[in-house]
Design a protein around this nucleic acid. Structure first.
Lengths: 216, 216
DNA sequence: GTCCGTGCTGTGAACGCGCTGAGGACACCG
DNA sequence: CGGTGTCCTCAGCGCGTTCACAGCACGGAC
């Protein structure tokens, strides 16, 4: 949870209160700092004051949305005019609360926002009857689950993103192994062997002198 | 757009106003009629009065959500107490406006709701026979209450919002703990251990080298 | 056929991940 | 002030994972 609020006392109170509810809370005190945090912080939601030094809350949301960031934003403002509220919401905020606000209501509204925050379903890689779900970290072959170790999974993941292409051992060492210098190319052969054993002999083709290819 | 409101004059005014904005609007005058319309009407969103003959707005939303209907609901009420508002939102409404309300604000809030699309999450998270109510801060396992500490609750909450997905320890430290830099990853292991003890050994799966997964 | 280069695989050892019990730091409460 | 509960660190352990090694199989060139 990100709180962008320049009044130090209110910010501290919000942080304490939300932490007591079990949220992990960061605070930013200026518009630019808040924008930056929202961009890179991976927050679930954001409580945003309108009156901020450096960049208004309105503008902050507008930029955030323009940059394709969709985290839920609850806007906080001392302005209770109907057009202020409508402007805030039309800039891209999801809710608008006027100061002074009830803490109970703030929490309930945050919960309602979080309820809706839906991370889109990650793609599932599929090649033939092989299926790999990066988020669930599951691999199935003809609907039967296959248990893979971390390294095996990473290797298959890389190959399934390039089905039919020949991938060299050096390329695999670079991307699936971190330090290619310290690992012998034979390790790749070993792990290809493991995968073949678990997925079927002919799923991974050897291209002598060039690398490996995932059969489509 | 569905309007559920028993005061004929207000209902008619809302219908006219929303139609002027380009919405196709149907009106229901009682709770049961509204519930039925919401179930089968395929509406984008719903404006719902709380005080209704036959079935209160609270109960209407609760049933709707229990039946897995997630259309956005803007609740309308003459009650402006903070707990009325919080109750309405925790029943599953997405927004709450007190009468008398500004028409401009109503429109802006409806636009914000429609922008978000239908929510995908119920107010109470449920995975298997595990149930977690964020508002009441309670967890039950097969209808038996389980006492959790704040940290345990936050951890389970985060995992239950991503059932079946693998969540890394770093991600958990970022979102469930405040300062990932200052907390050792081992703390996650410790708390997973606590949860396993309270919820059952096999509810939380370890994915070696990747993270943890809540069994679905 | 021989020879060489490349890839495959069984064995085994070191490593490091994750689990756990013990206990210290801290806050809250009577 | 001690009692209680929570949070988190630490150290030790078990064991799965990773990878080097060496011997073998196989393909291609001649």
């Amino acid at each position: 949870m990100l709180v962008v609020e320049d009044e130090a006392r209110l910010a501290a109170a919000l942080q304490r209160g939300l932490q007591a509810e079990g949220f992990a809370v960061d605070v930013a005190a200026t518009g630019p700092a808040g924008l930056d945090a929202a961009r890179h912080g991976g927050y679930d939601a954001m409580v945003l004051d309108v009156m901020l030094p450096g960049l208004s809350g309105y503008e902050l949301v507008r930029r955030l949305r323009a940059e394709q960031h969709w985290l839920p934003v609850l806007m906080l403002s001392a302005k209770d005019g109907e057009y202020d509220q409508a402007d805030g919401l039309d800039c891209g905020a999801d809710d608008y609360l006027t100061k002074p606000f009830s803490y109970v209501v703030l929490l309930a509204r945050l919960r309602a926002l979080l309820r809706r925050g839906a991370p889109e379903r990650p793609t599932v890689l599929a090649v033939g009857d092989l299926r790999l779900d990066p988020a669930r970290r599951r691999v199935t072959r003809a609907d039967a689950e296959v248990a893979l170790t971390a390294r095996e999974f990473a290797l298959l993941d890389y190959l399934m993103r390039r089905p039919g292409q020949v991938v060299s051992k050096v390329e695999l060492l670079d991307h699936v192994w971190d330090a290619s210098l310290e690992t012998a190319p034979n390790a790749v052969e070993v792990y290809v062997g493991y995968l073949r054993r678990k997925l079927g002999r002919d799923r991974l083709e050897t291209v002598r002198g060039a690398g490996y290819r995932l059969a489509t």
